[in-house]
Simulated scan of single mutants.
Amino acid sequence: MTLTVAHGTARFPAVAAPTVAQARELALEAVRAAGLSVADIAQVVEYTTDPGAGTGGWPGVTLSVVAVEGLPGGNGAAVEVTAYLGGGERFSTPHGVVTVAGEVVYLPGIVPAPGVIGFREQYRSCLEVAGELLKAAGLGLDALVQTTDYTATATRAEYPRCGRPRRDLLGGTGADGHPVHPGAAGILVDRPVAEGVMVTLDAVASRRELTAVNPGWSRYDTLTYKPGLAAGDTLFMSGFGALEPATQRAIFDDDLLAQAEFTYAGIKAVLREAGLTGEAVVRLVEYITPDAAARYHEVAALRAKYFPGSPALTSVVCSALLRPEFLIEVVPTAVFP
């Protein structure tokens, strides 16, 4: 996968290395090789098996640190960079740096406020912190377009409890007058970023009006997220897995290739509804379980078939996915011409 550039935004595929420090250096080399500098960086996401390794490598940059079970190939860290010519506007807050790059608002990695105890309470706290971050950019929670939350396998049974704070705090009315909620993905990781933290959240927002994109899947009528959300030049999407929309039944148990093809086909359906093709996808984040890691390389040909535009790719091994049958979950981002 190669660097993708669209509407002034450059998305770099994640670079992996044995340590976070080495991955940072490789990421900076890629940025400089593209004729850019640290001043142009809009967001950095560090995926690491050692979240306590420190975050001093990106002063003044919007940073998210994601704890993972591992990485394909056995490295210990991967760094993903998104750049925007000139770097956009940066706002320093007590929770980290917020960057507005054109119409997209990148938030730093979010953890609950100190002293908050309990799964649902920590989830609500993360959303409230997101609201505080968005205020710095003059926006509210109704501007969110995509969230990815990271929780532990032990909290899987409690996970439905996060629906209440999402229902209370998120959502709005789209440009077409219909309800909108941000896209969402839920990933299970048994490596907390800090002691006592049960939930961490990555989030992106937009300054543009939002429109929900749904191929007609009725299951989303009662959920606090949508399969796709169009905002200006960008189509932000939820996490996709091998789940039949009509029956909500997980399918293709223990078959990674079949699950991947079904997942990619679901993404294609949302793209089609938005008037796009697979070539419009500029970024893919693929979460695979440990059971899928050995055969993950076999997915590459399928990915190229569905997304011939060579999107920037980040691949990580999580502890598990919310549906125990899932071997892979994919979070895509696409752009309009």
Rank of each mutant, 00 (worst) to 15 (best):
Ala250Ser: 10
Leu302Glu: 07
Tyr150Ile: 14
Phe119Gln: 02
Tyr47Lys: 06
Thr49Asn: 00
Leu276Ala: 07
Leu223Phe: 03
Ala33Gly: 10
Val145Ala: 04
Gly76Val: 01
Lys268His: 07
Val199Arg: 03
Arg11Met: 12
Pro324Gly: 06
Leu28Tyr: 05
Leu322His: 10
Leu276Asn: 01
Ala33Trp: 09
Val316Met: 09
His95Phe: 15
Glu329Ala: 10
Leu170Pro: 02
Phe262Lys: 10
Ala53Asn: 08
Ser218Lys: 15
Gly56Lys: 14
Leu3Ile: 15
Met237Asp: 05
Ala205Asp: 06
Leu28Asp: 04
Leu71Gln: 14
Leu26Val: 11
Ser218Gln: 13
Tyr123Ala: 15
Gly138Gln: 05
Tyr220Gly: 01
Gly102Asp: 12
Ser319Glu: 00
Val282Asp: 03
Gly70Ser: 01
Arg120Asp: 14
Val65Glu: 11
Glu158Tyr: 09
Leu188Ala: 07
Gly57Glu: 06
Gly109Ile: 00
Pro227Lys: 04
Ser92Asp: 03
Ser238Ile: 03
Glu29Tyr: 10
Arg323Asp: 02
Ala137Ser: 11
Ala23Gln: 09
Arg164Asp: 02
Tyr264Met: 13
Leu327Val: 05
Leu321Ile: 12
Gly239Cys: 06
Tyr225Glu: 12
Gly241Met: 04
Leu321Gln: 02
Ala292Ser: 05
Leu71Lys: 13
Thr49Gly: 08
Ala258Gly: 13
Thr9Pro: 00
His95Asn: 11
Leu141Asn: 00
Thr333Gln: 13
Val285Asn: 02
Pro308Arg: 03
Pro227Gly: 06
Pro108Arg: 09
Val98Ala: 09
Phe336Lys: 12
Val105Tyr: 11
Val66Ala: 01
Leu223Gly: 02
Asp233Tyr: 11
Asp221Met: 00
